[in-house]
Amino acid sequence: MARTARQVLDEATRELAPEAGANRLVPLIAAGDAPVTAVAAFALEQHHVIASDARSFLHLAERAALLRQPAVAAFFDHLAQDESRALACLGPLAAACRLDEEAVREHEPRAGCQAYPAYAAWLALGAEPVDVVVALCANFAAWGDYCATVGRALREHYGFDDEACGFFDLFAAPDPEGAERALAAVGTGLVDGRLTERLARRYGRLLQDYELMFWATLAAC
């Protein structure tokens, strides 16, 4: 029986989900035990992550268009637009952490925090775009849960207002349009034979590992 796009995405998300307790920092933030400096470091690093990921997604969209995969290109165009909205949300978060524009501009990024966007850029250059769709969707499930937890905790334990938590709310909220575009993209990959699930899951596994490296690096700040 032919597999469906929904089956591919659901199985990848389930199999690549990080183990409980794998994230060192989010539970500390959830309990109010992490220092504000860790949240500030998050904001500083995300300025670099978001800018890099936006470029990677636009490049993937261009490559998919050249491969005549409009559904895959549409998925990455959607992600690039989300990154633009996320970048706009980082200002209030940085301000709540008492970071001014100079602090953001002068920050030197940490290697452990930038491994994820560096690998995303590597995927943008050479991976089959539809394989990257599956890998990212699996990672986004965990990322969204982390953002939901952090957004609640910052309000409850750190006194951040809704504007300051807007970055986390953006990624924690359901994205039905993105989900529909992901299904369409994966469906295209199944029909034209470009999707290689083994590689897609490899990419997803590495993205999850680099994501955990990001949080672990912040936990050591």
Rank of each mutant, 00 (worst) to 15 (best):
A2I: 15
T4L: 09
A5Y: 07
R6A: 15
R6N: 13
V8Y: 01
V8M: 01
L9E: 01
T13C: 11
R14L: 11
L16D: 00
A17W: 13
A17N: 12
P18M: 01
E19Q: 12
E19G: 11
G21Q: 03
A22Q: 08
R24G: 13
L28F: 11
A30T: 08
A31G: 08
A31L: 12
D33E: 14
A34C: 01
V39K: 00
F42H: 12
L44E: 03
H47F: 14
H47I: 08
V49R: 14
S52T: 13
H59E: 14
L60F: 02
E62C: 11
L66M: 11
A74V: 09
F76P: 02
A80M: 06
D82W: 12
D82H: 15
R85D: 14
A86S: 13
L87W: 11
P92D: 02
A94L: 03
C97R: 02
R98C: 15
E101I: 14
E102T: 13
H107Q: 04
P109F: 02
P109R: 00
A111D: 15
A111H: 12
A111E: 15
A115H: 15
Y116Q: 08
A118C: 10
Y119W: 12
Y119T: 04
A120Y: 09
A120I: 12
A120G: 12
A121L: 12
A124V: 06
L125S: 12
G126H: 07
A127G: 05
V130T: 01
D131Q: 13
N139L: 15
N139T: 12
A141P: 05
A141Y: 06
Y146A: 13
V150K: 00
R152P: 02
A153C: 02
A153T: 00
E156L: 09
E156I: 06
E156G: 02
G159R: 02
F160A: 00
F160L: 01
E163L: 10
F168C: 01
G178L: 01
R181F: 02
R181W: 00
A184I: 03
A185Q: 05
L190C: 00
V191P: 09
G193R: 00
L195C: 04
L195K: 02
T196Q: 15
R201I: 06
R202C: 13
R202I: 13
Y203L: 08
Y203T: 05
R205T: 11
L207A: 08
Q208G: 04
E211K: 01
E211D: 09
M213A: 14
W215F: 09
